[in-house]
Nucleic acid binder design. Structure first.
Length: 511
RNA sequence: GCCCCUGUCGUCUAGCCCGGUUAGGACAUCGCCCUUUCACGGCGGCGAGACGGGUUCAAAUCCCGUCGGGGGCGCCA
């Protein structure tokens, strides 16, 4: 179930080896939509023997936080997606954090400035905002007017020397029928005269997104860019930038967004959306990966429960659907259940341990004795098929760790037909020794021999032993009767306890 | 406002390129079976090509239009 670690010789420059990247900005917790994008990139790289890189886009100083970057790395590791190069492990073409690449951005801006393919813009935000609104009012596409495009070199120098703030804009060519082949959507057509010159270097010295990605992707040898469809209209700008530098652009593919049940882009108000939330809810990383891969893509054979290996083998970027997909928690649940039931019980137990500790069935951090371990594994084995998430385990094991007879079921235990069972129980298990599986089986047989059977046997017995009207089969429960001392389940005392309670109730009623 | 993307069961989708299918599968839902219970599991049912025009013997599939949904038009990424 773990992704195979397939190391390929690092080939930083184009030469057949595919290089893809995941480039999140650390401005919050990792969103499943972005995770899906990362996953598709990862699957593509793995199936072609390529490399997967992680780059942190933290040029937005206002919103970026180091702690988010750390969380992001931890969450992605939990998921099972591994990168060959990244800010935490380095690599030959770093640094992998945009905030550490400022020199690079400035250097390449100068190149563009020299070639007169970019220019300084002294317009204030106020002016720009006014122009924008005017354009909108006139029903035109708001775009930069180009007012600073033709300033004389002398004027530019003078204003720069005077210390006037300026941004650098790229001279966007105005091809009327620009097009590029999109990996998932086919040929896409644009009228670039509608674009306007865009900022590549902000007045605070930080690179703007459309510029930084180009510099980074090129310098990092990225060959394929799979990203969200919100980037479609950025793509022509970026390709033009590549051309301005004389570089070959990578291949682009744009994925449709992940939606919530109401059809709007998936957000917090739709429920869990961040990786750490799914983890806390007890989902298996491989199940989440499996589900995410199925959002917008379908395997050719129709089998939907897939391991990492199978995903890598079967995934096909050109078959990814072009329309948005609704995130369906129910299907995720089904997939998680399937993956859970495929896992060995020992593993389910060790993964679910934190949840048992949280439920206080096990002391936090206490090492389990071999007996306890064995007993718990057996218990997990029995209830495993009922688990939707790891977090369900405490609930499934509740009948062992807690004895809370359902009041509503007590009356039926007082019925005439049940009294032989009570007598027999008392006769057999009045002592203090724990009930063994062997004893229990012979108890059942003897009871049947005495004519205690059918309706008067199984259901009452279940209620007496578990306190519940439904649950695990009694014959499976038998193996768990000999629970380790430390758990102190008090199984053998349950009939007595319950009888006392019924007696009390009767007494109260009779008074 | 302008530009771009998109539209098959409630949901995820197959089929569309290369017209002829009872439009297939999965989740959910419903029913039956299994089970002296619940669940799991097994079997089955319900359920769809946004709409309107063309082209054609024949359209989910090709063409045009309408409508719906989404994205973009930033010194955010």
């Amino acid at each position: 179930m773990k992704p195979p670690r397939k190391r390929v010789k690092i080939d930083p420059y184009r030469g057949g080896s595919m290089r893809v990247r995941f480039a999140p900005s650390p401005t919050g917790y990792v969103h499943v939509g972005n995770v899906r994008t990362a996953l598709f990139n990862y699957l593509l790289a793995r199936q072609r023997g390529g490399l997967f890189l992680l780059r942190i886009e933290d040029t937005d100083v206002e919103r970026s936080r180091k702690s988010y970057e750390e969380g992001l790395i931890e969450d992605m590791k939990w998921l099972g997606v591994k990168w060959e190069e990244g800010p935490d492990i380095g690599g030959p073409l770093g640094p992998y954090r945009q905030s550490e690449r400022s020199e690079l951005y400035r250097e390449y801006v100068d190149l563009l400035l020299e070639k007169k393919m970019a220019y300084h813009c002294f317009c204030t935000p106020e002016t720009l905002e006014r122009e924008r609104e005017e354009a909108l009012a006139k029903g035109e596409t708001p775009r930069y007017s180009g007012r600073c495009r033709n300033l004389t070199p002398e004027e530019v120098k003078e204003r720069l020397d005077r210390g006037e703030e300026s941004a650098v804009r790229f001279k966007m060519p105005d091809d009327k029928d620009f097009h590029y082949p999109d990996l998932v959507r086919g040929d896409l057509l644009f009228d670039l005269s509608l674009f306007g010159d865009f900022v590549i270097l902000r007045s605070n010295g930080q690179p703007a997104y459309n510029y930084a990605v180009v510099i980074d992707d090129h310098l990092m040898g990225v060959t394929d860019v799979i990203r969200g469809e919100d980037h479609i209209s950025n793509t022509p700008k970026q390709i033009k930038l590549y051309e301005a530098f004389g570089w070959t652009p990578p291949r682009f593919g744009h994925l449709a967004l992940v939606l919530g049940q109401d059809g709007s882009p998936l957000s917090k108000r739709h429920g869990a959306t961040s990786l750490n939330q799914f983890r806390a809810l007890g989902y298996l990383p491989e199940a989440l990966v499996n589900y995410l891969a199925l959002l917008g893509w379908a395997p050719p054979e129709g089998e939907e429960i897939l391991s990492w290996e199978e995903l890598i083998r079967l995934f096909d970027i050109s078959k990814v659907s072009k329309s948005g997909a609704t995130f369906d928690y129910q299907k995720l649940n089904w997939i998680n259940r399937k993956h859970l039931s495929q896992l060995p019980s020992e593993q389910v137990l060790s993964l679910a341990l934190p949840f048992l500790e949280e439920a206080e069935y096990i002391e936090k951090g206490r090492k389990l004795s071999p007996d306890e371990q064995k007993w718990l594994v057996q218990a997990v084995e029995i209830v495993k098929a009922n688990l939707v998430t790891l977090a369900d385990l405490p609930k499934e094991l509740e009948l062992f760790f807690q004895y809370r007879p359902d009041e509503a079921l007590l009356p039926e235990l007082r019925e005439e037909a049940v009294s032989p069972l009570w007598n027999f129980l008392e006769e057999k298990f009045s002592g203090d020794s724990p009930i063994t599986a062997q004893e229990f089986i012979s108890f059942l047989q003897e009871a049947k021999g005495k004519g205690i059977k059918g309706k008067a046997l199984f259901h009452p017995l279940r209620v007496i032993l578990t306190g519940c009207g439904s649950g695990v089969e009694l014959d499976k429960l038998i193996n768990l009767l000999g629970a380790p001392e430390a758990f102190n389940l008090g199984l053998k005392r349950r009939p007595l306890l319950l009888k006392e309670r019924i007696q009390e109730a009767k007494g109260r009623a009779g008074r």
